[in-house]
Nucleic acid binder design. Structure first.
Lengths: 192, 192
DNA sequence: TTGCTTGTCTAGCGATGCTAGGATCGAGCC
DNA sequence: GGCTCGATCCTAGCATCGCTAGACAAGCAA
């Protein structure tokens, strides 16, 4: 059995390598540069090896997205647990969210912009995605205000953050006023 | 001169045909299906003809985006001018925006999701885009609230709408509660 | 009619995602 | 220890993509 276990370990290790390399390449040169050939060359295997791990390029993007969702959830929880008071917590949450999107544009794209073949808002949604939403809900739920469903409020707040993130990064919004936009958003949406 | 004028007319007509066909094909089968070959076949010309009108596929997407921006601006102005009272106007504006995105997903993608090679938030931003933002600003500026820059408020509101539009269409948000999300958003953001 | 510009098409280039089929290597049995 | 056979990996190739060079035809001016 030991031999098979070793092989499984090596296989899992190689899969991590594929995902990490895809992510790295995407952050360096954009997702367009992540071709199966280049990716294969970087991991020092031939192209078909990728297809023994993933169904295709889409699934690789999806794997990067899941990794990113887990990281984002952790980052959100780290900041919110360090902040005291609902208002400060929500502001910190918003900043962390936008900061994550700005620092990991390729990962953010994999999560929300590109087609990673992931299901959302269903019961078969992957765990990391549900958990990231849960992380948002934890802090946002307490400022939803009376009579407003916490999940609905979280959806709206999240959509606003997502809009700010994508429009800013696409050059649709001037980056200079980013902080003022966050303050305005939190000030209006959160019922402190 | 008459001959040249006729040729120019025919050329302009063919350019409109290209853009309209690209848009139609994209709405029917998605932008992935809009290849230069298929597009050329549909307009009953050969591939290189496309390149005598546009620098490449990106510019065709950009042309569809501009057309869409003009339509959206018109749609927004039509509803807001029909509504009286700032609050009703803003609600109608939000509904129209989301409705446009839902009814013309491919055009909306061309405007904000895909790379159409368009500049934003610069002085060299194409007129239709500036005008669409202006249409938003006209109604949103009057509910920005005291001491809040109308343009900044418009950016935030727009980002929220954009987030709702994209996340809903990508299946990230359950479509059922769309109307309640709009009410929540308008109720909180707009200082009536 | 002749020559030239303008317009269009055929054919092809390099690159893409993905796959079929052959080569290689090592585990496990006699 | 040698052999067999299955798992693993690679070479080579397919269809398709965006885009372009160069041949060819049509229509204008002289």
């Amino acid at each position: 059995m030991s031999v098979q276990e070793r092989k499984q370990r090596e296989r899992a290790e190689r899969e991590r390598l594929i995902v990490a390399t895809a992510r790295e390449l995407a952050e360096q040169q954009g997702w367009d540069a992540v071709t199966t050939r280049r990716l294969a060359e970087r991991i020092e295997y031939s192209q078909p090896v990728l297809y023994s791990h993933f169904r295709g390029k889409r699934e690789i993007i999806g794997a990067v997205a899941l990794e990113g969702a887990a990281e984002m959830a952790a980052a959100l929880r780290a900041t919110t647990s360090a902040a005291d008071g609902p208002r400060t917590r929500v502001t910190a949450l918003a900043r962390t969210y936008l900061d994550f999107a700005e620092r990991n544009p390729a990962v953010y794209d994999a999560m929300f912009q590109l087609d990673g073949g992931l299901a959302f808002a269903h019961e078969d949604t992957p765990e990391p995605l549900k958990d990231a939403f849960a992380a948002l809900l934890e802090s946002l739920g307490e400022v939803a205000g009376d009579g407003v469903h916490p999940a609905l409020f979280t959806e709206v707040f999240w959509a606003a953050l997502h809009g700010l993130a994508t429009l800013t990064r696409a050059g649709r919004l001037p980056p200079a006023d980013a902080e003022r936009r966050v303050e305005l958003l939190v000030g209006r949406l959160a019922m402190v």
